[in-house]
Design a protein around this nucleic acid. Structure first.
Lengths: 154, 154
DNA sequence: ATTTTATTGTTGACTACTCAACATTTATGG
DNA sequence: CCATAAATGTTGAGTAGTCAACAATAAAAT
């Protein structure tokens, strides 16, 4: 009855390609957990953090539809995320000139401040967990996961 | 306003290690979506599928605590998952001789049948999406994601 | 043996996410 | 111009997941 370890995969594999798939998925889950915990005292969820980061990196107002397409989540989900962030005064909804269906979402000053603070903490952790990776390994990992993702569309 | 593509990452990167991290996380999300859709007509969620697979691969009754540790989710979550699977008659809860706190969870005959059927469909898809991967690439991807996961515990 | 601590499972309050249905508004085709 | 189609955001029901608090039970400490 060996105790499960966070690093172990939940089952054994006969096939390397299958192991790779499960390992990617599993690692993604672990990353999500790690960053949720890391930022928990600043923000309610990793998803809220992601949305703020996208808004900051994009550097211009985005509609909910754009956020939905960028983050690859259903637009109904964005509604709730935005509602929550608005209640915390981190973003603002502004009507779009010329399209009364849409809103332009922008960071508030406070939202911008918080996002920058969290980004520092986040980047520190990224450096920490990739400290053991050579440039070659990082490039390989990025390349292989990108390739895998490309093949998912079919 | 280029339309987002499922393969694109949501932001640009200055740093390969960072790109690798985001790419792993993002690919995990896409995998989850893909398999949810693939199995949707058979089962309510990828999580229910995972639980059934773990039960099948383990090949003996497991307590909810064991499932929680194997799947790395909170035990409170297992309660709900098991409740749902039980309502569908896919698993059974049996009291454990000698420990009145626990249940032994086992697949029903129907649960076993369904799991095997889903596994076939799942494995076909795994083969399909890794068709473009050489043995070397699969091994590298498995190795690098395993390595990344190892470094997450700190 | 009794007290204290740990384990197991459950519940309730939050959060994310999907999907289908809907209203409003904009774009398109006759 | 008008009728139909598409786009945008919202709502409600269903799913997963976390966390904290709780009850029951088992294990450990004294």
């Amino acid at each position: 009855m060996k105790p499960s370890n966070e690093s172990d995969l939940p089952v054994a594999f006969e096939n390397k390609a299958h192991e790779a798939i499960v390992s990617v998925w599993w690692t993604g889950e672990q990353l999500k957990k790690l960053f949720r915990k890391l930022l928990r005292s600043y923000i309610r969820s990793e998803s809220q953090f992601n949305l703020l980061m996208v808004l900051k990196d994009t550097g211009r107002p985005m509609t909910q539809m754009e956020l939905s397409k960028t983050l690859l989540v259903d637009r109904s989900n964005i509604t709730g995320l935005i509602d929550g962030l608005q209640k915390q005064d981190l973003i603002r909804r502004n009507r779009v000139k010329g399209d009364r269906r849409s809103y332009h979402i922008t960071l508030t000053a406070g939202g911008n401040r918080l996002t920058q603070k969290m980004e520092k903490i986040y980047m520190r952790k990224v450096k920490e967990i990739t400290a053991g990776f050579s440039a070659r390994e990082s490039a390989d990992l990025a390349r292989l996961t990108n390739k895998l993702r490309m093949g998912l569309g079919t």
